[in-house]
Simulated assay, not measured.
Amino acid sequence: MARKPELDDFRVPYFDTKKIEKFALADFDPSAKPFSTGSKEGDRDRLSQIGAKLDALQECLHAQQLQRVLLVLQGMDTSGKDGTVRAVFHEVDPLGLRIVPFKAPTANELAHDFLWRVHAQAPSAGELTIFNRSHYEDVLVPVVLGQLDNDAREQRYRQIRGFEALLAETGTTIIKCMLHISKDEQRGRLQARIDDPTRHWKFDVSDLEARKQWDQYQAAYHDALMATSTPYAPWYVIPANSKTHRNVMVAELLLRTFEGLKLEYPPAKESLKGVKVE
């Protein structure tokens, strides 16, 4: 009998052990559904069950005001970053939940180091923060466009590892998900946006230019994942051709992470014992 897949089967080898563990992004099938229940309805039911658990755990995180959680979502255009946020967190209380979408840096942001704008958005105590795109755009896009040479790229990898180590050492648990779709799946999703006038706002002509550089982006992702997956900030490759499977897998990963934090509500206040509200 085949072994049941585990979440760590999709974890990118840690940076300091990459010489021992082999990794190739192309080895991961974007159409795989290792954590599916077998049907879309079943996946949605499972997602709802996880959502209820995450809601309770996230409330405890917020009440405790000690730990922080950062979820990073990266992926090619149309990989489903927005959809993942909507599906996974629709049952989670927005109190203590913050979503940060990163776009092209402004002139003011470009006048600082590339991590300046990112550090300002890091989660505060008791907060779950979701980065929809992230600082990884700054080692993907410029690499593909030829704006960073090898030395500058390696320098940014090193700075990212240091930045994430700082967050981890000061109480932030980091989970990073690369939403992995196929080129054919992206073609269908882009065409659907073009064919539906109500979705034109989600389409940008630059998406077509980026698509022409598909292989370069895949190589850039491979290198970035390999260089920045660490014990304190691991990367996971999420097969994302199936939207419902993608959502379930991210939710399962987040649930495991929250349960591992051993969260507890703050101690009861003795000063409230016996208090009656008139």
Rank of each mutant, 00 (worst) to 15 (best):
D196Q: 13
V139R: 03
Y217T: 07
I175G: 00
I160P: 02
G188D: 06
Q186C: 06
I130M: 09
Y236Q: 15
V141P: 09
H135C: 10
L110W: 01
A227Y: 00
L145H: 08
I130H: 05
R193D: 10
T170K: 11
G171Y: 02
L208T: 06
P197A: 06
D113R: 11
R199T: 10
N150S: 07
S182M: 03
K212R: 07
R187I: 14
H245A: 13
A224C: 09
E164T: 11
Q191D: 07
A168L: 05
R193Q: 08
P123I: 02
I175F: 00
L208P: 07
T129D: 01
L167E: 02
R158P: 10
Q191V: 10
N132C: 03
R187N: 12
A120E: 11
K183A: 08
W235C: 13
P197G: 05
Y136S: 12
Q213H: 06
N247Q: 15
S206F: 02
P123Q: 01
A227I: 05
T173D: 03
E164G: 12
T244H: 06
E185T: 12
D207W: 00
S242M: 04
I238G: 08
S134I: 11
L208Q: 05
K212V: 05
A224W: 00
G162C: 11
T129F: 00
L190V: 07
H222C: 12
T228P: 05
L179F: 04
A233C: 09
L167V: 09
Q213L: 14
F131D: 08
W201S: 14
Q121K: 15
T230V: 08
N247S: 15
W201L: 11
P231H: 03
T170W: 02
C177Y: 04
R158K: 14
R161K: 07
D138Y: 00
I160A: 05
I160T: 02
Q213N: 07
H180P: 11
R153Y: 01
R189S: 07
W116D: 13
N132F: 00
F203T: 10
T244C: 12
Y136T: 13
Y236W: 14
H245N: 12
G126T: 07
E127K: 11
E209L: 15
Q147H: 12
Y217H: 06
L179V: 13
